[in-house]
Design a protein around this nucleic acid. Structure first.
Length: 284
DNA sequence: CGCGCCTCCTGTGTGC
DNA sequence: TGCACACAGGAGGCGC
């Protein structure tokens, strides 16, 4: 379940291990991994071979490798995607989807994805910002992120505050884990209607979003199960610092009330019923 | 047009 | 023991 801190951890690894290297070979082992590349897997490979990686960028949960052709190799990890640098002799494993060999003969880049929600595509002319992700809002770590604009947009919405946090066109990078953790820190129930959130409460919430994701990044992200790892296959440690997510039945770290889990959008919401009282007029 | 629900996937865990 | 099912969930797409 990679969200911004996990994707940023992967981006740092890609920047370190891929920048300046020339792609010499691309092998697509599962067509679903390149389903967003409309011209198909053969084209995907053909346009990448011979290109040099000039930089690695991220917006929200999307990553892209800028290429010397001014194109971009765009990737999304979905739920279970991993980008790993491994020697060519390393066994492929059952979930290897795409492999990239480099002209220097060094470690190859592998896209491994158990649940195949992730994927890769080439964006022509997309080195600066792929057109495919232009609809994704700036994330809180973007130098041009404007909290006041986001608070204003949030208050114009007619929905629940958790739904709004998960909407990547409003603010990007937040998924189920950090939404629940931010709401707990802010003392807000996820069903609180956005249009009844005061401006200061909106600012506080965004500050908590930024804070919790920043703390998670320092610890290499959250590895709830073995599916999220960095480019060296290592887990992050932030799961130990989670206050409510995944802690149904445990005491709230702030008030000792029992943390609850409720179904939400085909997934779960975790919250403290005392610190985060349900609004009288909830907004789904 | 905004909102919310459905679907795509597979491995793991649980209950009968 | 084995089967059935819930669950994990990002995001595109579609229906209202």
């Amino acid at each position: 379940m990679p969200e911004l801190p996990e994707v940023e951890t992967v981006r740092l690894g890609l920047a370190r291990h891929a920048t300046g290297r020339r792609i010499a070979g691309v092998e697509v082992l599962h067509p679903r991994a390149v389903r967003r590349h409309a011209p198909g897997g053969d084209d995907f490979a053909a346009v990448l071979v011979g290109r040099v990686v000039t930089g690695v960028h991220r917006r929200g949960k999307y990553l892209w490798l800028a290429l010397d052709s001014d194109d971009a190799l765009v990737g999304h990890l979905g739920m279970s995607g991993q980008l790993l640098f491994l020697g060519a002799e390393a066994p492929p494993g059952p979930h290897l989807r795409v492999r990239f060999r480099f002209a220097d003969g060094g470690p190859e880049l592998r896209f491994v994805d158990q649940r195949t929600f992730g994927g890769m595509a080439v964006s022509l002319g997309g080195a600066a910002l792929p057109a495919e992700i232009a609809h994704i809002a700036r994330d809180p770590f973007d130098p041009q992120f404007d909290p006041e604009r986001v608070v204003a947009a949030l208050r114009r919405r007619r929905t629940g505050v958790k739904r709004a946090l998960l909407d990547q066109t409003l603010v990007s990078g937040v998924g189920n884990i950090y939404a629940d953790e931010s709401l707990w820190r802010a003392g807000l129930h996820g069903a609180r209607p956005t249009d009844r959130l005061t401006r200061p409460a909106g600012r506080r919430l965004l500050a908590h979003v930024t804070e919790v994701m920043g703390e998670a990044l320092v610890q290499g992200g959250t590895s709830f199960d073995a599916l999220y790892v960095n480019v060296n296959g290592e887990s992050g440690y932030f799961d130990r610092s989670l206050s409510v997510y995944g802690r149904e039945g445990e005491p709230c770290p702030r008030c000792d009330a029992v943390v609850r889990r409720e179904p939400f959008m085909n997934r779960s919401s975790y919250f403290c019923p005392r610190c985060q009282p349900r609004p009288r007029r909830p907004s789904a």
